[in-house]
Design a protein around this nucleic acid. Sequence first.
DNA 1: TTCCAGCTATAGGTAGCAGCTATAGGACAT
DNA 2: ATGTCCTATAGCTGCTACCTATAGCTGGAA
Lengths: 315, 315
Amino acid sequence: MELRQIEYFMAVAAHQNFSRAAEHVHVSQPSLSIQIGGLEKELGTRLFDRLGRKVVLTQAGELFHVHAERALRELDQAEQVVQELLGAKRGRLVVGALSTVNSYLIAPLVSRFKQRFPDIHLQVHAQASADVVSGLLSNRLDIGICLLPLTHPQLTTVPLLEERLALVAPAGMNIGKRRARMQDLARLPLVLMPVDYCLRKMVEAECAKAGVHPQVVLEMSSPEGILQAVAEGTGATILPELYVRSRLPGMDLQLIDLYDPTPRHAVGLAYLTKRHRGLAAEEFAAICHTTMRDLQSDPERSRRNRPRRRAAGQK
Amino acid sequence: MELRQIEYFMAVAAHQNFSRAAEHVHVSQPSLSIQIGGLEKELGTRLFDRLGRKVVLTQAGELFHVHAERALRELDQAEQVVQELLGAKRGRLVVGALSTVNSYLIAPLVSRFKQRFPDIHLQVHAQASADVVSGLLSNRLDIGICLLPLTHPQLTTVPLLEERLALVAPAGMNIGKRRARMQDLARLPLVLMPVDYCLRKMVEAECAKAGVHPQVVLEMSSPEGILQAVAEGTGATILPELYVRSRLPGMDLQLIDLYDPTPRHAVGLAYLTKRHRGLAAEEFAAICHTTMRDLQSDPERSRRNRPRRRAAGQK
DNA sequence: TTCCAGCTATAGGTAGCAGCTATAGGACAT
DNA sequence: ATGTCCTATAGCTGCTACCTATAGCTGGAA
């Protein structure tokens, strides 16, 4: 078994296509075919089903893929820890972040991080909280941003912020005021996440507290999709306020504060307790905190920074 | 970075000596030296301190060693899990089967399969023939049991059995004999599947052959539901004989043979021609055939086997 | 149906590299 | 000093991963 074979295998699995995979790893398609063939022969079974248009993993391929990915990741880390020891500010940092937090926090965060560590290859995945957790546990992520409280024996968490949830309705929908009680939700058609999502559970728990049974007219798993549906008038929804604010411009939406009680949830950093955290990870966490503090003391900052190019063009 | 380099590195770290390590990995000492040198050059640092008599890991070497070992272990496991799959020591098999066939064939089939492959996770879905086909095409099923003939370019089929269809009527309904001509159907209110089901089409085709226009009083998509409706006196129905026999006990139904002609349809195994079939799938197909043969030569067998525990308790 | 586009597998030739043996060169023990 | 034990270097050889060209297959369009 050769490392080359593993890399080619991963490329084919990712692209579901030999030719694209070949381009991606910068070899010709026949070379890649031969290597995959060799690997399959060595293992004694097909790893891919060549189904004409598409190539998909066989069951053996899927099993192999799990461990192959981890192996490559370990080798990555092996190299990285050495580089960090040498004091070189290079390497890779893979972050998993809640899609909602991703929208308002990540942009300024990434820009600060990149400024300080221009040679670190930063990779951010927007995911549901549960995916962040599984990503950390399976070692695919270096650090995660997810919902708290999170009590997992292998994970350490650091609180980062509290997100207030707010009601979002189509601009045309007549809510009647700029603030709404939780009880008012009973009257509204709602677009929420599927039931296995934390945010949905949280909303339902708050509703239960207020003695309200929400009318769910549509379930979508991405907050982005939910906002779209709301903008089209399908119903109202409940999402983190900061997230919605970052999305408001250009969408026909109204943001309504919820109170009595105001639903909120905690967000924090998480990482595998036993894993060696490199300089990059530590600094990322620190920058998370400072960025967060700045955002809260001056919520406009990130938006003022964004359209820098347009502002320059206007002068 | 090459896998070979990692292996040599591990050997040197274990033996603290290049020459011994070289013997251990079956290469000459210079070859091994060169590989280690290459690795060190790539990482930009020494991994070993050559202390004359002895060789010890540097700090960088120790950090590298941790992850390198894990990487190798993952690769080991990658190979291991594939081998276990090949030996049917793990894996899963997803089968789609006609609901009717499901009732009499699957119980003994599953019990045999589980006995032979206790470590394979078996999943059986009772579905209409069309769903089995689409399940196979979309790669959700590993193997299917559906109606024949089935001419799809991507599917291979293997005939398994011929099902005779029989008339089923409420116990109270006066049919007048134990056998009925197809023509006799004209007089009976019938509960049949919806028109887009194969079984319905089949029945209509047979009726047309006999010059009969069936009176359909109710359409239901599940054979189980149809039998319930029949037992309640809604009408008679036509279903595979073996299926009905497996359901007869405890239901107020009469089973009447049809002839002139006896409607029958073929049932077979189907799978994606180009897909790799693992040992589990092949064996499942084989067990299908043997179980089928046993059932036909001794239709009571499956029922005799079932209540083994009760029989033991009675002695 | 036929044809074309897109894909993977095979064939044959080339170059790069891991392998070898022989040997140089350094560290330690006697 | 000198022999022993070790790693590094030199020079050669054979394996193989790579390339281009092309065959063979499949699925969709005309």
